[in-house]
Structure formats: C-alpha cells, structure tokens
C-alpha cells in the first residue's frame, strides 16, 4: 500500500505540450506511471510520449477515466487549471506550478473544499510511491520501495534526504512535497492522517522549514494522535528575519516561524530531529529495526 498515488493512478497531465509538461510526461511514463491523457486547450489530437492530448479535462476524463491530474501550466493559469480538474471529477490534483498568488490559492482551496477532491501544492515537486507511480518532477532513480513515508515543504532537500535514506538501505512507502507556498491544499497533518492508516508505512519523516506554524501544529498532532515513529528536519536555522528564502512561504516574520521554535516544538512532542540531512537518515535507520 501507499498513499495518494499507486498502481490504480490514471494520470492526466495539464499543460502536457509545454516544455516542462512534455519532458516530465516522458519521465513519468518511463517510471511506469499510468499516464492516460494530456490536456492543452487547442492542441487536441496530438500525442506526447504516446499520450493522447485533449482540449479539456472533462473530455479527457470521459474518454480515459483519468482520476489524478498533475498541473504544469504557468502560474497565472494554475488556479483555473485546478478548477477545471475539480469540476471534471478528478480526485487528486497535484499542482507543480510555482508562483501562484496567495489570494488565488485562498479561493482555490475554498472552492475544492466542498468537493470530493484533494489538492497537493501549489509549488509541489510531486508524489512518488516507489515501484507504483511517480507524479511530478521528483527524480525517479533515488527511490526504493520500503516502509518510510516522507513529507516535505521542499523539493531538492527532499531528494537529498530520500537519497540518504535509500543509501542507508531503507526504502520509502510514499514521498511527497506539499509545496513551499504559504497557502497550500494539503498540509503535513493531512498526510500523517493517511500515513497512520497505511499498513506499509512504519515511520514518517517530516521535512519542514522556516515560516508559518505548520510544524508546530504537526508536532502537537503527532503527540496526541500518531502512533508510528516520526523524525524531523527543519531547514533555515541560519536564515535572517524578514527575508524570503526562495519559497514564498519561507520567511521568518519578526520573531515568528523560526527554525529554533519549530525544532523545539518537534522535540517537545517526541519527534526526533536530525541536525543535518545525513543525521535524519541515520536516526531513521537506527530506530527502525
């Protein structure tokens, strides 16, 4: 088992004819993901990596029974892409687009909250259940099937930690990046709720960073509700206040949202925190016997 994506994933790629969309469609197909359709308005009839292209998500769903969508469109079109997928009955939407305004995301999250639909992102690198499916831009070669769940606010830092976990001999059940923006569809706790019920997941690694209080809320949730071991990492211990560190959500406001306060929250709630990515992998290895 795994969470979010697996062998039953029937993937649709929104923005499939674009540079990133077409490249990563190839990568996802190569990984073994069941990519059934692509959508670019006005480009129906083409094929990208053997995948048929449609003019609308509704049409693509009707013809191919797609149940999951990954969005590669430019930020200014991303919110409409989410609305279109949700309206067409897609159950899981993974939004890779980076740079969507926060006020747009507030509307997007509200719009889909009443539907039977989950959004991951925006600004997510995607979701991988090793050996089952890869949805997004994460590099497939670093993953190995196993029992560690990984959830992160970052992209390449996730790869670094996953790579070290794999090299330590362990594998992963599902890994995902929830996105580095302030307003995102799926948060750490949403993922932990699913990892809790996933019998193949024995432990979870939570990779946080400065900004907001998602890590603090997650720590309390873990203490009160989560029975499996959780390991943590927080990036940005050396980040100065009031500077955006790349991600729109990675900013210490005044004295709130620092790495120190998040690490303390994790440790106070029994989450073992690695000082470095290598130490996180070591902690998982030592504690998962």
């Amino acid at each position: 088992m795994s969470i979010f994506v697996d062998k039953n994933t029937r993937l649709l790629v929104q923005g499939i004819t674009g540079r990133d969309g077409s490249f990563h469609t190839g990568q996802m197909v190569k990984y073994g993901t069941n990519v059934v359709a692509g959508v670019t308005p006005g480009k129906a009839g083409q094929k990208v990596e053997g995948v048929p292209v449609f003019n609308s998500v509704a049409e693509a769903v009707k013809k191919t029974d797609a149940n999951t969508s990954v969005i590669f469109v430019p930020a200014r079109f991303a919110s409409d892409a989410v609305y279109e997928a949700a309206d067409a009955g897609i159950k899981l939407i993974v939004c890779i687009s980076e740079g969507v305004p926060a006020i747009e995301m507030v509307k997007v999250v509200d719009y889909i909250s009443g539907k039977d639909c989950r959004l991951i992102g925006a600004n997510s690198p995607g979701v991988v259940s090793p050996g089952e499916a890869k949805v997004g831009i994460l590099p497939g070669h670093i993953f190995k099937k196993g029992s560690v769940g990984v959830v992160s606010r970052s992209g390449t830092l996730t790869y670094e930690i996953v790579d070290q976990i794999t090299k330590s001999g362990l594998g992963q059940s599902t890994c995902l990046g929830i996105g580095g923006d302030p307003i995102i569809g799926t948060k750490f706790i949403d993922c932990l709720e699913l990892f809790a019920d996933d019998k193949d997941t024995e432990a979870v690694v939570v990779v946080g960073e400065i900004g907001g209080r998602d890590e603090q809320d997650t720590a309390v949730y873990v203490k009160e509700n989560f029975k499996k071991p959780v390991f943590g990492f927080v990036a940005g211990k050396t980040a100065p206040a009031d500077k955006r560190m790349g991600h729109a959500g990675a900013i210490i406001s005044g004295t709130a949202g620092t790495a120190a306060e998040k690490i303390k929250a994790f440790e106070d709630c029994g989450i073992k925190v690695g000082e470095t990515p290598a130490e996180v992998a070591r902690l998982v290895k030592e504690n998962l016997k």
Partner: peptide, 27 residues
C-alpha cells in the same frame, strides 16, 4: 534567489530548501 549573509563561504545550490540546509550545514 539570493540573500546576503555575513560569512565567507559562498554557497551555490539548486532549490530553496536545500540552499537553506546547506547554509545550516556550513554553520
């Protein structure tokens, strides 16, 4: 995306999370 700090080891990284983790690691 660049933010100046006060040290002497210049870091060039791909990705914001890894860039922060790299600064932290140097420290």
């Amino acid at each position: 995306s660049y933010v100046r700090l006060s040290g002497n080891i210049g870091c060039v990284v791909n990705g914001a999370g890894l860039a922060m983790a790299t600064m932290d690691l140097v420290k």
